[in-house]
Design a protein around this nucleic acid. Structure first.
Lengths: 222, 222
DNA sequence: GGATAATACGAGCGATCGCTCGTATTATGT
DNA sequence: ACATAATACGAGCGATCGCTCGTATTATCC
């Protein structure tokens, strides 16, 4: 058993008819993930939900994992579209306003099919082919790092890689956790406060003006 | 199938012999999770690994989920012990030093059986009984909030709930992501830098001295 | 319109899973 | 010592899973 970890379609869908079949399968996978959860998403069930025979499913996907990968990639494409737009829009703006816009966009991005997002985040094992799909994070990282690079003069002297890592990770975690576990801070009245706080967090971190504090106890760990 | 979601042992282990059996099962579950991953951890396999019959397993655990819950709870107890100690030690110290210690401890905590931590984070579905086990996070939240409360005078005026949420979420994410995806920033030379940056992040956020910026565009979202 | 390629179908095999239940073994109390 | 309770055992049932393969249908090309 085990160990067949193919991810790409076995067959390229060339005719119109088959492209529809593939779409129906990906669509059905997403629906089932949301409605029934990851474990209950068997290939048989997916084929049935899609109105497609199990044989046809295996003509285009080598297994459940490949279907989930397809769903994730589609979801990520949609999310990154929002993020990219935000960074482009932020380009000309001063640091704080830019950060604010990007953070607001991060929240907005997490609202693209949040139920699917939840299933993918909470139930989908990051194993096999699924683990590499986190190219998503590194794309966000590159995007933000590029912004920092172009606005280096507004920043304190800092390793851009590290700074981008700190900012992206924090923003991601804040919006992610808020969406999944803190719906109350996302009410129309409260969401502004959250954006304010997150903005203060990263701007205070990036700004040169921050009070330079004695980096004493460096060897506290290890 | 489905829907039996018991979590607590069916039988309390009263004699010494049975307590050993339960321990062996939990221990075996952790080993298998690490070695083979979540999906391959079947009850049959766990029983075999523990050197215990499948019948005995079901005398004490209603299913796989309960076993995993037991493993998670044990792991969380170990981690929170580190965190609690750090907060206690931070009590008398000024904000920055305290934050530094807590962050260093957060990294240290993530080093308690990191391979198990990875499996639990990446493969274990947060579903059924597993979702409530995230009481872990809320415990960390309470702990940190209590510290903030006792040091309110060193802070800018801020909603403590919100501030604790922002700090805990960020620190958690930074250490978590670093341990799981950025081993290079945890080398003995680099880890100090990471602690420095994380400290600057939260201290700059909590300090009153931070340059108060005009909270303009509040309605950027929605 | 006939040949060939592309696509769709679904019964069903073999493997694994979670779990029960009847039985055997060991500890406890008197 | 014996009776009773606690614990341990594991064969095997029923359900589900992933997946193949022989066949039927539909599109494409000349």
């Amino acid at each position: 058993m085990a160990a067949r970890a193919l991810t790409s379609p076995r067959k390229r869908a060339s005719q119109e008819r088959s492209r529809a079949t593939v779409d129906a399968l990906v669509e059905a996978t997403a629906r089932i993930l949301v409605r029934d959860g990851f474990d209950r998403a068997s290939t048989n069930r997916i084929a049935q939900e899609a109105g497609v025979s199990i044989g046809s499913l295996y003509q285009y996907f080598p297994g459940k994992e490949a279907l989930v990968v397809a769903v994730i990639e589609r979801h990520n494409r949609e999310i990154m579209q929002v993020a990219r737009a935000a960074v482009v829009e932020a380009e000309g703006l001063p640091l704080e306003v830019a950060a604010r816009g990007i953070i607001a966009a991060a929240i907005e991005a997490h609202r693209v099919d949040p139920r699917l997002h939840r299933v993918l985040a909470e139930q989908t094992p990051r194993t096999g082919a699924l683990e590499s799909v986190e190219a998503f994070n590194s794309e966000a990282f590159r995007l933000f790092r590029a912004y920092l690079e172009r606005h280096r003069d507004e920043l304190r002297h800092v390793d851009l890689d590290l700074a981008a890592f700190v900012c992206v990770t924090s923003i991601e975690a804040l919006t992610h956790t808020a969406v999944l576990h803190r719906p109350e801070v996302l009410s129309d009245e409260a969401v502004g406060t959250l954006v304010d706080e997150a903005t203060r967090l990263v701007v205070g971190y990036l700004r040169p003006s921050a009070p330079v504090t004695t980096p004493t106890s460096v060897a506290l760990i290890r």
